[in-house]
Every structure is written in C-alpha cells, then in structure tokens.
C-alpha cells in the first residue's frame, strides 16, 4: 500500500500524542483550574479607545488624500476623453488623442488599484500600532489575572463566555488610562 509522508509521520507521532493526552487527563484538577483563558476583540479595542479612534481618524485622512489623487486622475481622464471625442479632428489627431486617453485610463486604473492596496496596508499598520500598545496591557493583565492564553483572533474562537473570558473592556479602559 502506498503511504504518503504525512501518513507515515502520523503513525510515528501517534504514541506521542496519546502520551500527551494522558498527561492532561491525569494532571491534578487544581493545576488545570489555574489555566485561565481570555479573549480580546481587536476591532472593539480600536472602536472603543481613544487610541483606536485616533488611528481611525488618521486612516480617514489617509483615505481622503488617496481620494483626492484619484479624483485628480479621473478629471484628467475625463478631459482627455472630451478632447478625443471632439468634433472636427483629423484622423491622425484623433488617433493620437485616443492613444493618450488609453494610456491615461490605464494609469488611472493602476492608481486605483495601488490606492486600494496602500489603504489596506495603512489600515494594517495603524491596527498593528494600536494592538502593539494593547499587548503591553494584555501582558500585564495576563500576569496579574493568571491567564495562560489570551486570544485576539475572533475567527479562531468558536464560543466566548463574555462574563469570565472577554477582557476587551478591561483592556480598553486600561489603554485609555495610559494614553491620557
């Protein structure tokens, strides 16, 4: 029978996996009880903190700047289109203007694509900046509260018991306190 490298490794690691599971099952209940797990929603940290609001305002300014560039470029395309469609042009002149229009339209499309990419990148930078500041708070909260793990990715969490594990509000409050 043909065995893929993956299935070979599964066989090799199966005893190890069983051993780890046994350790967990046989571990004292007190030790497991101390392993608290927390969750923080980054989007809410951004929405509910002064730092996050400021980052959002910065992003809005950036988007407005990119929009201004896009509008300028669109206006140039519109002017060239009007020129290319003008009456009474010689065939040579019309061809030349249409070429110009095509080139400019392609540049405009490229600009729009670049703008979208740049805006996404800037959003990521700003979010990372806010979350890096939040990390310091998380670390402190984790140590004080005895949390072994604090998740920050909503997609990786199926269920959150808000009362006991959602630390978003506490993080937001602490972060606001630090950025006064």
């Amino acid at each position: 029978m043909y065995q893929t490298p993956m299935s070979r490794s599964n066989i090799f690691f199966a005893p190890c996996f069983l051993a780890v599971m046994l350790v967990f099952l046989l571990a004292p209940p007190a030790a497991l009880a101390e392993q608290k797990i927390g969750f923080v929603n980054p989007q809410r940290v951004v929405n509910e903190t002064r730092l996050g609001q400021s980052a959002k305002a910065d992003l809005a300014r950036y988007v407005a700047e990119k929009d201004r560039l896009a509008k300028e470029s669109a206006a140039q395309v519109a002017t060239l289109r009007k020129e290319a469609e003008a009456h009474g042009l010689s065939p040579q002149d019309r061809t030349r203007r249409e070429d110009l229009l095509r080139r400019k339209a392609a540049q405009h499309e490229q600009l729009l694509a670049e703008n979208a990419r740049d805006i996404k990148a800037e959003e990521t930078k700003l979010l990372q900046y806010v979350m890096r500041k939040a990390e310091a708070v998380l670390e402190e909260l984790g140590k004080k509260g005895g949390y072994a793990i604090i998740f920050t990715d909503p997609a990786s969490v199926g269920y959150v018991d808000k009362a006991s594990t959602d630390l978003t509000e506490r993080v937001a409050r602490e972060l606001d306190g630090r950025s006064k």
């Binding site: 305002a57 910065d58 900046y129 500041k133």
Partner: peptide
C-alpha cells in the same frame, strides 16, 4: 523603527504629491 509621524511623496518637480500624518503616534505618553 516605529510608525512615522508624517509621510510625504513628491512629483518629479518637487511639488507635494501626497502628504499625510498620524496623530495616533503622539497619543500614548
């Protein structure tokens, strides 16, 4: 190595093409 406060890009002739700044980097004391 962190986020800059202001960023500027230019046209070939030195005119400002894009200019933006980030107030967020001023916030945390």
């Amino acid at each position: 190595a962190g986020l800059a406060y202001a960023v500027a890009r230019f046209y070939e002739d030195g005119r400002l093409k894009e200019f933006w700044w980030r107030d967020v980097v001023l916030l945390p004391k």
